[in-house]
């Protein structure tokens, strides 16, 4: 066991982690931030995407000790200060970008990383960026639509209805 300390959603946190404690385990089991999901646990599905020092990473494929000293943002840190949904979350609701919702935390975190790097992505760029996020419900069209809408672009022409 060793001590790890990091800033999660703006708050300083610390705890004990074994060498093989994954970041996602630390977030979910120690900090009880269960919004970050574990889908595949093999780096394929992206349900566990969080931001570490501003970069989207798969929290199932990083050790907690590697995030020592880092700034981490999870889905719990995405809502507006007054508790209302942020623009990406609201767009997912407005455009029916989720069904069962299991992949949604990862989708929102990836979308936020994309829009930070590329505020007005094309539809193709959105689809390309979501390569590591798997959704088994929606068929992706409405997720893409939600992200385009969150970037302030017209979504009338996107994909199939």
């Amino acid at each position: 066991m060793s001590k790890v300390a990091m800033t999660v959603n703006g708050k300083s946190v610390s705890g004990d982690a074994k060498g093989n404690t994954l970041l996602v385990e630390f977030l979910r089991e120690d900090l009880r931030l269960t919004g970050t999901h574990v889908g595949c646990d093999t780096s394929q599905c992206g349900a566990c995407v969080v931001h570490v020092n501003g970069k989207a990473v798969k929290a199932c494929t990083m050790f907690a000790a590697e995030a020592d000293g880092a700034e981490v943002t999870t889905i719990e840190g995405m809502a507006n200060a007054d508790g209302s949904l942020n623009v990406i979350q609201q767009a997912f609701q407005d455009h029916h970008g989720l069904q069962c919702g299991f992949c949604t935390p990862g989708m929102v975190m990836s979308a936020a990383a994309l829009l930070k790097e590329n505020p007005k992505p094309t539809e193709a760029e959105v689809r390309d960026y979501l390569e590591g996020n798997i959704c088994r419900c929606t068929g992706y069209h409405n997720i893409v639509k939600a992200i385009m809408a969150a970037s302030g672009q017209d979504v009338g022409a996107i994909a199939a209805e």
Binding site: G46, V49, A56, K58, T61, M62, A113, L114, G132
Partner: peptide
């Protein structure tokens, strides 16, 4: 390589 989150690590 991989996907964006993999490329960040």
């Amino acid at each position: 390589i991989g996907d964006p989150a993999v490329r960040n690590r």
